[in-house]
Design a protein around this nucleic acid. Structure first.
Lengths: 325, 325
DNA sequence: CTGAAAGCGCTAACAC
DNA sequence: GTGTTAGCGCTTTCAG
């Protein structure tokens, strides 16, 4: 691979000069620039970003840690994070934690060692104190990590309220909520709060199933839903904490001969593309995925550039009514 | 951030010695090792991978270029590529081309400049000659780029045959195939060949719709399917070239009052998780996604390590029958 | 306006 | 066994 030295020799100038045209520093004659660019092209030269980063102490790389890139929600998050990062000349180092504690920890260390300029953290199995050791610009998704670390989240509470209200308005008399893990201190937990506050205020019978499946063993949701309907055959409304779970609920309803939305009404959460593919079309609480990604990238870059950023960034959700309610 | 020098000073030895314990070279007394490790921990030291990579001329980074990480197929590919890369101590630089030529080209240059050790290429809008300039270990997905570059692909031809045969066996009298772009010289095109060879041999009326939507403007497939049924109301079997398209077909069938599988039978392609979420359960030709990813990573690492690798790597597909046939 | 030289953090000859 | 030194490819002071 050609280096700056090769280019310099070919043009007959010093490496300093080549570096200058590379970075457009000071006055360079047009003629000189042309000759240098030509040599670069001839040699198929690309400046070594490793060397540049080492010198500048800036890699232009962002680490993205998520539980599972193949989960539709995180796939869409990643897609938009990449989009906005690219726009700002940042690259993405992809870290899939599979919600495995030690893998998450290793990735955190690896990212630090790799001199990434900042981290977007969407996987949350580690304790707060692990992050104090990192000492790098950080943005979290859906989790308040500490007083100083900014986070981005949809308005899950509002989402819980909207879902519960819709089901009640549509005439449901007994509503089930299939929640995610409530022990991890995630903001997603407030979906549960919003749901509960609403059904209690409206005095609607309800039942909550907490899944501690870490959200990514899809296959097992079928079983959970099956048990739910066995124990509570009179359930006529379900608020699932993700669209993927909602899809499982629909499948199970079909298997049990329950018609949707006639016998059971279903509301999902996330607003991923999946909801558009399935039949019947899934009513859901849409998270503003693109804006979440955009905000995360912006907050991170602002921090990298030494700007003060807002700690709390709650983005609005939206009820999208389709055919399951 | 602490450097090797800080550690050396704290322990009272030279940087060489610290480097030695870091890399476990030569004889080091247990006592010394312990003191060095302790200092590292106290300083919260992480070796700078940028500097290491620069020296070693090896970054342990793999570039992954795909059209769209939020497309379920590529999401699953990426998940497994990450899995096997991580196992082998490689990191993933994620590049989403959106099937945009110039973005793909820029990412290619960027990866080279970033000194990645190799590239897995799953997005194919560029001409062969762009790759000769790259001169880096390369593996392509679904495309024969040149005589020397190894590729990994599912047995698309067999998939096309299996799909056509199944629909014929199930009694379909007029079968539609919704294909991807046949002009890009992808191996996926052989799905079409397998399908055609079979329906022609069996003398089954058929119609092919080629989509040049680049495969990722999902919303527009609805229109295509609508037109298809308008022009050919007697179609009773559809072979879609992806599960996502198949899902759209199911949606459209429902809208048009066509019952699946009674009036129309549908076969998808890919075998992504989506197929398990939708109702009715989608019959599909399953690609061995995990093995494709594993093979790609292995071929790339072998090349990085200077081994000879096999050029053609065709992996078997499998017919998965569910409820749409 | 251009070049020699130092240094980013690390590793590995090569000495002692 | 341990340290001195050069150098990976680049950028930037600082002389000239």
């Amino acid at each position: 691979m050609a280096t700056i030295k090769d280019v310099a020799e070919r043009v007959g100038v010093s490496v300093t000069t080549v570096s200058r045209v590379l970075n457009n520093r000071g006055y360079l004659s047009e003629n000189l620039k042309r000759r240098v660019y030509e040599a670069m092209r001839e040699l198929n030269y690309q400046p070594n970003e490793l060397a540049r980063s080492l010198f500048r102490k800036k890699s232009n790389i962002i680490g993205l840690i998520i539980p599972d890139i193949s989960h539709p929600f995180f796939g869409e998050i990643a897609r938009y994070v990449e989009y906005y990062a690219y726009k700002n000349k940042y690259k993405i180092l992809l870290c899939n934690s599979q919600l495995n504690r030690s893998k998450e920890q290793e990735y955190l260390n690896m990212l630090k060692a790799s001199q990434v300029d900042g981290i977007i953290m969407g996987s949350h199995t580690l304790d707060t104190k692990e992050f104090t050791k990192i000492d790098l610009p950080l943005v979290t998704l859906d989790r308040q990590l500490s007083e100083s670390i900014p986070y981005v989240s949809a308005d899950h509470y509002k989402g819980g309220v909207l879902a519960a209200k819709l089901l009640i308005r549509k005439g449901c008399r007994k509503i089930a909520h299939i929640s995610g893990n409530l022990k991890l201190h995630l903001l997603a937990k407030t979906r549960y709060d919003g749901f509960m506050d609403t059904v209690i205020r409206e005095k609607i019978p309800h039942v909550v199933v907490e899944t501690d499946l870490n959200g990514f063993k899809y296959d097992q949701y079928g079983k959970i839903v099956e048990n739910l309907f066995r124990d509570h055959p009179d359930i006529d409304g379900v608020f699932a904490s993700s669209d993927v779970i909602a899809a499982q609920v629909l499948k199970e309803c079909r298997r049990l001969g329950k018609e949707v939305p006639k016998d059971v009404k279903v509301v999902g959460f996330d607003g991923i593309k999946l909801g558009e593919y399935i039949t019947p079309g899934l009513t859901t609480i849409r998270q503003p995925i693109k804006e979440i990604a955009k905000t995360s990238v912006q907050l991170l870059i602002d921090q990298i550039n030494g700007k003060e950023v807002q700690r709390e960034n709650i983005l609005p959700v939206k009820l999208v009514e389709k055919e399951t309610t």
